[in-house]
Design a protein around this nucleic acid. Structure first.
Length: 419
RNA sequence: CGGGGUGUGGCCUAACGGAUUAAGGCGCUUGGUUUGGGACCAAGAGAUUGUGGGUUCGAAUCCCACCACCCCGACCA
């Protein structure tokens, strides 16, 4: 992608009201734009990151035989009346249609997927099954805050699994927990599985918490045996690990995902059952598993940045390389450098290395450097007076190093990074 | 939802009852000089000061209502 074609603008200054680091950097670097409290537009750069996160999630979920669907977001109100959550769920957005029909804007999808599963599953032979979607959620938070961490409209991956019995559900939940750790790791995050309250559905759930000062949650975790739990589930102050009796560490953290055992609660409400081998009617056991994708994006930026800007983890970076051609008044030098930069650009592109090419003329070199650091791609290749095709300068804030390379060796060098 | 605060060109700010035609910086347009860390000079374009009402000879400025946004708390399947 040539930067001269990219729809984006960086900002030196944005409102002091925008306090959260994640939205500050993402707005300043031209990834997102704020529409209202807890409502954001995703610009080309931001959307690329979102799509990369989705890709990772899809790869890992499809690998364990989960199937993707896309569920309705406009829910006829009777579905919510039936589940009893119309009154209980206090962040519901509701809309009225032209003929006075009432809808709920989806804050979650149990009310939709359980009726769907009822129609399609009749026998123990149909189970287990795991369906997921990546979709927008609406929650009328009284206080949206912290940039992308707590929004009124946000993108979420929600997965629902259906089983013949609790044992199979537990088996699957463990598999999901493992898969979640893989997903977060690929996103550049260290997530801690944390025992938490199960809300109204079950006694406990597993939350995946990323430690950062920007977080709203408080967790206690053991540095020795990795046992961790959310502050919400402890009654009395207890500083010792219940497993190995080490001192627990207290940290603020962001919940980027969770896994729940729903039991048969919704199956009973929506009468979702199957026939077992003995022709007996049994309620289906279900689990639900969420990852807040836009929140995850916020968490990635909170954790991966320095004073200059974002430092993207490789797999979710909008591009791997920022190719920067510097400008000079001497048109001869300028022309020569442009030729070199074009060659580097094509070489990278032809070898499937994702590159953003800052080809802009009439932009000062200082501005190019500062904007590049703000955007924060893992590698910068600088084509300037001191660097030419036999002496390319490669920088990385990710590994804090400067390399000098010949164009001929460039692809080999990048390929060696993956090993 | 309780408490506190803020709304001024696209963005960030100043002016806080009368100094002029609402000022400056960023960004934008045109021309010129620059270019290894958000360059400089010159000339431009761009605002019914969140909305509605009120007080006053006079309101961006004071008062009321509404709306929006921010912070603290509560809430958070």
């Amino acid at each position: 992608m040539k930067q001269s074609d990219l729809f984006f603008k960086t900002y030196k200054k944005i409102s002091e009201e925008e306090e959260a680091k994640n939205s500050q950097f993402l707005i300043r670097a031209g990834f997102i734009e704020k529409v209202g409290a807890g409502i954001y537009n995703f610009l080309p750069l931001g959307l690329i990151v979102i799509e990369k996160i989705k890709k990772i999630i899809r790869e890992e979920l499809n690998r364990i035989s989960c199937q993707e669907v896309l569920l309705a977001n406009l829910h006829p109100q009777e579905f919510w009346q039936k589940s009893g959550r119309l009154k209980k769920f206090d962040v519901l957005f509701t809309v009225r249609g032209q003929r006075d029909n009432q809808y709920v804007l989806a804050p979650t999808h149990e009310e939709i997927i359980f009726p769907l599963v009822k129609k399609n599953i009749n026998s123990y032979k149909d189970l287990p099954v795991a369906l997921y979607q990546i979709n927008t959620k609406y929650r009328d938070e009284l206080r949206a805050k912290s940039g992308l961490l707590r929004n009124r409209e946000f993108i979420m991956k929600d997965l629902y699994s259906f089983h013949t019995d609790e044992k199979d559900l537990e088996r699957f939940k463990k598999l999901m927990d493992k898969t979640y750790l893989k997903i977060f790791k690929r996103c550049g995050l260290k997530a801690i599985p944390t025992l938490a309250s199960g809300g109204t559905f079950s006694e406990f759930s597993t939350e995946f918490q990323v430690i950062t000062e920007a977080g709203e949650d408080i967790i206690y975790h053991c540095p020795n045996c990795k046992y961790a739990f959310n502050k919400e589930i402890i009654d009395e102050k207890n500083n010792k690990c219940q497993k190995c009796f080490n001192n627990l560490i207290e940290n603020k953290s962001i919940e980027v995902g969770n896994t729940f055992n729903l039991g048969t609660k919704f199956s009973e409400i929506f009468d979702v059952f199957y026939l077992d081998k003995n022709n007996q009617k049994k309620y289906i056991w279900a689990g639900c598993y969420g990852i807040g994708i836009t929140r995850l994006l916020g968490a990635i930026v909170e954790v991966n940045s320095d004073e200059k800007g974002i430092i993207w983890p490789k797999e979710v970076s909008p591009f791997l390389v920022h190719l920067i051609k510097l400008n000079y008044s001497d048109s001869k030098i300028n022309k020569k450098l442009r030729l070199i930069a074009d060659r580097v650009y094509l070489t990278l592109k032809n070898n499937n290395i994702e590159v953003l090419f800052d080809d802009r003329e009439n932009v000062s070199n200082g501005q190019k450097f500062i904007e590049s650091d703000l955007i924060g791609l893992p590698y910068q290749i600088i084509v300037g007076e001191h660097s030419h095709s036999e002496n390319l300068e490669i920088r990385s804030r990710l590994i804090k190093k400067i390399h000098k390379l010949k164009l001929n060796n460039l692809i080999k060098w990048f390929n060696s990074l993956n090993n």
